[in-house]
Design a protein around this nucleic acid. Structure first.
Lengths: 126, 126
DNA sequence: CAGTATCCCTGTTGATACTG
DNA sequence: CAGTATCAACAGGGATACTG
């Protein structure tokens, strides 16, 4: 094997050419971070991972989250194609939110975030 | 089995009691997000994943990142215990940064961020 | 070389009150 | 019930210039 070959476990991107020198919006890492960006967003996603929820159910699940920010989050998630909104006819109005396939694709990332956080919490203070 | 059991693949947290109702700083997900928070941070981490780098090497690797923000990022990573700083005697000053064990523990998360971002980019527009 | 010191500007968050 | 509308407060990020 040629010398100066970087050992495989040191490589983070498929090809060296794929390594961005700036936070480009189309870098996959930026795309994933943008998907879960915003305070409260991961909590909203977590709740929706269990299945569709009505607006009021979401609100009751996160009592300290204001209407304003909850709507902001849901709108942003919808704009990103991660959540679908279903308005049911009748009165009072009832709106149900559920993850799209793209939204469900975030599950492994949330699991990995949790796992990594736990690992960091247990890390010895070097 | 009892009915109303939530199927395992719907569960995101170990126990229902472990599900926070707010973005608490000690929630593992928040811990992991805090570790990689800040613009440019994932790029700095990526570069350091390949091995120790001098300050000037880091700067040349990310030419559009200002000194101010680079130092901010390195200081923050150091405060979080993810990066170690080694000052080498002599003139001109030479400082080398390298990941700690805790910093290296972020590799799977970065890989998962990249993978998820790619998956989202390929997602069909529903 | 490896940083500091300022200033400013913008986006995000949160509190409060109101509505179809 | 499911949102809108305002406004105030703050933190993050970048440009520029300077230093041990």
């Amino acid at each position: 094997m040629a010398h100066r070959t970087v050992s495989a476990d040191r490589v983070l991107v498929p090809t060296a050419a794929g390594a961005t020198r700036r936070p480009e919006p189309d870098c996959p890492v930026e795309v994933a971070l943008a998907a879960i960006s915003g305070r409260w967003t991961t909590l909203v996603l977590r709740d929706l991972m269990a299945g569709p929820l009505a607006y009021g159910e979401l609100r009751r699940g996160l009592p300290e989250l204001s209407d304003k920010v909850l709507v902001e989050r849901l709108t942003a998630l919808r704009d990103r194609g991660l959540v679908a909104r279903h308005e049911h006819a009748g009165f009072p109005t009832r709106v149900v939110y559920e993850l799209t396939d793209a939204g469900r694709a975030l599950r492994p990332l949330l699991v990995e975030l949790y796992r990594t956080g736990e690992e960091l919490q247990q890390a010895p203070r070097t």
